[in-house]
Design a protein around this nucleic acid. Structure first.
Lengths: 142, 142
DNA sequence: TTGCGTGCAAAGGTTTTGCATGGCA
DNA sequence: TGCCATGCAAAACCTTTGCACGCAA
């Protein structure tokens, strides 16, 4: 068997998009915001290209995709590879957008429970628990 | 003060939609599925009307609106007022697309755990757990 | 009679696809 | 040189809105 050529090319667009996502840290952005960001750059990146890279980066586990408001579109956030994010649950606050990384044995045991009792292998990279964080809960009560 | 007239009329469309939702029990449907259901009926119901009734029924607490996937739209579920039927987790298989409703006390207790220990109020209407279902796991091993 | 309900058509916004061109390896 | 990547335009998709007419009370 002949070794096939790499199925992926490195392009300036792909690099710039990933770089931009990384530069934002844990802040999330929409596809449209990314397009606008590069609209003022020397070399514009088309929205089709942005969507295609976001899809690929999400599939590769480099970024996360969220569906926050129903009135807006999806938003994306960079994943810090050093944080072992494929091993714990993530909570995303719908109000303020904060991302909470859980480090909790009970939640981890849920992974086993799902597999043992529900015959379901959960994918923690793609799974996000949506809700309201403590700070926003307190703010709502006041 | 004069007693205002009832602000809501009873129409055949409204009755038929609610009746249909109730007949489905805990199964959920999309707006489009409802439109198609009545498309083969003697009296068709326009999609605008379907959306407006779904919105109203959800506001009245008669049905529940789930925003589960990114690949489909919203889906709606009848709420049996006599059963105190509560929201539950949904598991979505990434391989075959199956949507699995959980009815499990341990999973339900996770809702409490998140609130008590993590100060996080989960929104089950928006939360979907992604992974691989038993059938697809078995198929992958073979 | 009043004004809510209906539904067609059209708009709205986000995301995807067709296709010819451009650029990496 | 072969193939993937790009990006414009257009389509697909779900949902909402404008508006004239119908129908409940």
């Amino acid at each position: 068997m002949k070794q096939p050529r790499p199925t992926r090319y490195t392009t300036s667009q792909g690099q710039r998009i990933l770089q931009y996502m990384a530069s934002l840290g844990e802040q999330h952005v929409t596809a449209h915001q990314i397009v606008r960001h590069f609209a003022s750059a020397e070399a514009v990146i088309g929205q089709t290209t942005v969507y295609r890279h976001l899809e690929r980066l999400a599939a590769e586990g480099k970024i996360r995709k969220y569906l926050l408001g129903e009135d807006t579109g999806a938003c994306y956030q960079y994943i810090d590879q050093s944080k072992a994010c494929q091993e714990h649950f993530h909570l995303k606050c719908e109000k303020c957008g904060a991302l909470i990384h859980t480090d909790c044995t009970l939640l981890d045991s849920m992974e086993d429970h799902l597999l043992q009792k529900h015959d379901f292998q959960i994918n923690l990279l793609k799974t996000t628990l949506y809700g309201t964080c403590g700070a926003c809960l307190a703010a709502a009560k006041a």
